[in-house]
Design a protein around this nucleic acid. Structure first.
Lengths: 148, 148
DNA sequence: CCGCGCGTCACCCGAACGGATGATTTTGGC
DNA sequence: GCCAAAATCATCCGTTCGGGTGACGCGCGG
């Protein structure tokens, strides 16, 4: 921004000098004062506009607009967390069923295992998550990015 | 953008007229041609710059950079759903506690009511949601945008 | 081959939960 | 002030959950 200003200032100076010369030339050929003034006015007005445009053209305002992305369907499982907690795939699967609001019996049906097995898995995953209730397990599971 | 241009055009016209008048006045008092020309030049240059700035101020090159914002803090309760289901504020509050993974006893403590009351509220909200388990109630609550 | 992790299943028991029902008090609007 | 809705508390009962424990089979790597 510094450089262009100086440059334009210089350019303005040069133009003014040029106009001074032109002024004398106009005087020599004896034109009317009104025409002379008008011309100077028009020229400098144009120059000013051009200068103004040039000066502001550079100042593009970058507006960073934070746009809400509609669908944050960008769930990615935190596998490091899964491993650090020692949660097995089967346990994770059961946790997902729990999060879906299913009872142990329903989970048993969908997972093709006995209800007791579901209980074992859920107990284990609760233990690993530090949860005492299935709702808490769901809450923690979401917090830890284990389930969507 | 149309209006300002016209406005500035008009303003420019007015100023030109004013300058014409000034011009004649200057003539009357018989100042030197150089000073007169310089003044006109300076005035019109300033006017031009000002005009140019004004004109381009509006037409700033706006670069909209869409930034992926995580922002899950965009939860707004679907009050119409709340009303259509006939869920009371207290019930909603209990539902939130349930979603937080608290037991009825814990909820009773935090809400300063007896466990029985919590059970009543939860039973009612389950009924209204069509849920049979608290995990399912949480799931449905989130689906219906009743809780974050 | 033996142990280990994982998945599977079972039983018991106490705690928590859910459903049904009834009652009383508070609150807010007309 | 009255009425309806909401909030409160209670009791009973059956179901579900969660914790604890034990056991069996399978696959994989030491």
């Amino acid at each position: 921004m510094r450089k262009p200003v100086l440059l334009y200032g210089l350019l303005g100076g040069v133009l003014i000098v040029a106009l001074k010369l032109i002024e004398y030339r106009w005087l020599v050929v004896e034109h009317s004062l009104e025409i002379y003034g008008g011309l100077v006015a028009v020229i400098f007005a144009g120059l000013g506009i051009w200068l103004g445009l040039k000066l502001t053209r550079k100042s593009e305002t970058v507006i960073v607009r934070e746009v809400e992305v509609p669908a944050p369907a960008d769930f990615t499982r935190d596998n490091s967390k899964v491993e650090s907690l020692g949660i097995t795939p089967r346990e994770l699967e059961i946790l997902e069923f729990i999060a879906a609001g299913l009872s142990n019996k329903e989970i048993a049906e969908r997972a093709h295992v006995s209800e007791n097995t579901v209980k074992t898995h859920s107990s284990r995953v609760f233990d690993k998550l530090g949860a005492r209730r299935r709702t808490q397990a769901v809450q923690l599971g979401k917090e830890f990015r284990l389930i969507p």
